[in-house]
């Protein structure tokens, strides 16, 4: 049985605003210092979901596939260190970080080329462009059922995938026959820490590089909007600090201030 986990290399979401550089020529968000990218956090949780499945399904093969215009191989190799059997990197200048279609076409073609998958795991969305579209395009291209926002993934008798889907006010179970695509969300839990032995083994393993041209991915439709400007928004608020002798005093002062300014009104209709 094979699980494919789709990974995206993204700008570190914790990059401070002062380190971001906007390239309005190429319409790219770049990072000033030599700050390396990271694997999209939700995708890492996809790896975690696969690793948890392998705890019961011993023969599960975990293949991680990423498609991007360029890679930081050391960063991507974390997937091997935590226990993925294979890492496939599809690299091509056309794989813009923010346009979902070429990326999904490349991923789908790579999945087909390795002989398909029983389960495809994706993160719910990329922390950079937040489109969350790749899993849907993949489902369409691979003609697989799609289950989304899983906080728990389970495979029953090797044939069906069951998930617990997160809702705004609770959760709901869903299922589909394999092969299927599942997207995971942060409630699933963080990716485990790799052991050093696994890291060293991973360091010796090399990811498989596949050229997009060799995949026969087909031409993606030109459906993405064109980016015509990038800007760093200003949050112009001036913080008034409540001065008081102590914590309780500040609490009292805060209540009075909010009542005076009308931010809080007591006995108002809800």
């Amino acid at each position: 049985m094979r699980a494919v986990v789709c990974l995206k290399q993204v700008i570190d979401p914790l990059t401070p605003a002062t380190s971001l550089a906007l390239d309005v020529q190429d319409m790219k968000i770049r990072v000033r210092a030599a700050a390396p990218p990271v694997i999209n956090g939700f995708d890492e949780q996809g790896i975690e979901a696969a690793l948890r499945l392998r705890e019961t399904i011993r023969e599960l093969e975990i293949v991680c596939i990423a498609a991007s215009e360029r890679f930081n191989t050391d960063v991507m190799k974390r997937a091997l260190a935590v226990g993925a059997d294979q890492l496939i990197l599809v690299q091509d200048p056309s794989l813009d970080t923010w346009n979902s279609y070429p990326v999904a076409y490349a991923l789908a073609a790579a999945i087909r080329q390795i002989g398909g998958a029983d389960l495809v795991l994706c993160g719910r969305q990329g922390s950079d462009w937040d489109n969350g579209l790749v899993p849907y395009i993949l489902a369409d291209l691979l003609a697989m059922p799609l289950l989304t926002l899983a906080k728990r993934v389970n495979i029953a008798d090797g044939k069906r995938v069951e998930i617990e889907r997160v809702l705004a006010d609770g959760s709901m179970t869903m299922e589909a026959a394999l092969p299927a695509i599942v997207t995971v969300t942060s409630e699933l839990g963080a990716l485990r820490m790799p052991s050093v032995a696994a890291r060293l083994t991973a360091a010796r393993k090399q990811p498989r590089q596949i050229a997009l041209a060799d995949l026969g991915a087909g031409a993606p439709p030109a459906l993405a909007p064109e980016v015509i400007d990038l800007a760093i928004p200003v949050t112009g608020r001036n913080c008034t600090f409540i001065e008081a002798a102590d914590g309780p005093g500040a609490g009292v002062r805060l209540a009075e201030t909010l009542l005076e300014t009308g931010a809080v009104r007591l006995g108002m209709e809800r």
Binding site: T235, R237, C239, I242, A250, G251, L254, L259, V264
Partner: peptide, 22 residues
Amino acid sequence: GIANYGVVGDCKEVMTAFRDTL
């Protein structure tokens, strides 16, 4: 950095007094 009003203090102390005042 994005607040209109700020209180530097222990949350339990501040919020207990805040609640009691309200």
